[in-house]
Design a protein around this nucleic acid. Structure first.
Lengths: 215, 215
DNA sequence: ATACTGTATATTGTATACAATCAAGAGAAA
DNA sequence: TTTCTCTTGATTGTATACAATATACAGTAT
């Protein structure tokens, strides 16, 4: 069963990846013609992909003036931080009773891997593992709509930059975050879904001391 | 300043309204040609609107087989109930410190109007007021992304049907809901944002005794 | 030099044309 | 009758053509 992928989907993935990888950023304007030339397709599938990307929050569409990449600014960062906690916490709550022994072992393994990454100052590695950690239980919450929301919100954390924070301070922040991961793992192991939700929502994603508000 | 509205937007509104109003429902298949004929436009803006509607959760797109209205079923209803509480609660938390005297008076007025609607057994009127009540503080939470999410989730509650519940039972459910609204108003007046968030999230939108899971 | 105006070019929005796939029905084989 | 295959028409996916608007730039007036 070879699953059909339209040119629209192909274009969609191409642009989405370019944005996620940071190759397209800021308020970059997208030229339809340029995309057509690059991918050897006509404007129809390109426009359809752009409309979908705009609907999914990747782009913005100024009527009669085209599409441009939605810039990350203070305001949208604040909006994301205000929402992610309740959603991630709810995902943890729902995932908790759906985890089996192997799942819990995976979470523990990821936590210890992150600790290793911190010890070796492998910041990028830590970042990847952190996403994998959160993704792991979100993917198992059994709520497709919730999974979609969290995925969309997390996209913005992909492009975080650490440049303007000095290295020691950065390590300290990661260590704090991973201590929280330890508690999250503990609550998953204990199977205390309610406490888990509260901890993820109110502590790990605390609006106040959000150490993740770093771009 | 006449703001430009493309044919795509026109088509989008047309279909969205047809779905919201219930004129299109179930798994109804949408014929592109039929829409073209009805609105006297070509397939291009129609397809663009359909793609956006699918991205916004109105429709589903089976490759090579077209678009059909996303049906409401047990599963998607459960998914919505699992998400709406944390989001609506967070919206209330954020809105609370942004409310002025007039806003609080509006909420109180809406609450009392709902009580009146219950007393007169005006179920449809109550429903409208309830939406207005929740919308009122959500619209003032200062988080556009959150507003969008709640709006999308609430679409599904628009088409709720009361038919299979007897009238007295229905009135009792509405009375309970409005008692909760009273508490919500009280917390808004008290300015206790934290308690408000908790109440909206854990009591009013409680997963367990969700009296709103009625289609 | 600066600001304005008109024109040429580029880009977006929409319509139409063509290609690929799907769905329905007729007819043949079991 | 049932099932299979083939064919035909309908529908979707893509390309191209055309129309409407926006952008850039040259030339002119101040």
């Amino acid at each position: 069963m070879d699953q059909y992928r339209s040119l629209k989907d192909h274009v969609y993935d191409h642009i989405a990846q370019a944005i996620d990888s940071g190759r397209l950023a800021g308020d970059d304007k997208l030229s339809e013609q340029q995309i057509c030339d690059a991918l050897n397709v006509s404007r129809t599938p390109v426009r359809e992909a752009l409309i979908q990307l705009a609907s999914d929050g990747y782009l913005e569409n100024l009527p009669r003036k085209g599409f441009h990449v939605k810039a990350m600014n203070e305001e949208s960062a604040r909006e994301i931080v205000e929402i992610i906690g309740p959603l991630d916490g709810r995902a943890a709550l729902l995932a908790c009773p759906r985890m089996d022994e192997d799942d819990r072992a995976q979470l523990q393994f990821l936590h210890e891997s992150m600790q290793l990454a911190i010890a070796k100052s492998m910041l990028k590695k830590y970042d990847d593992l952190q996403h994998e950690f959160h993704d792991y239980y979100v993917q198992r919450c059994g709520n497709e709509k919730l999974i979609g929301y969290v995925r969309q919100l997390n996209r913005y954390f992909m492009k975080r930059e650490y440049a303007h924070v000095d290295h020691d301070k950065q390590i300290a922040l990661l260590q704090q975050a991973n201590d929280e991961h330890a508690e999250i793992v503990r609550l998953f192991l204990a199977g205390d879904a309610t406490a888990l939700q509260r901890y993820v929502r109110d502590v790990h994603w605390s609006i106040d001391n959000a150490p993740f508000l770093v771009w």
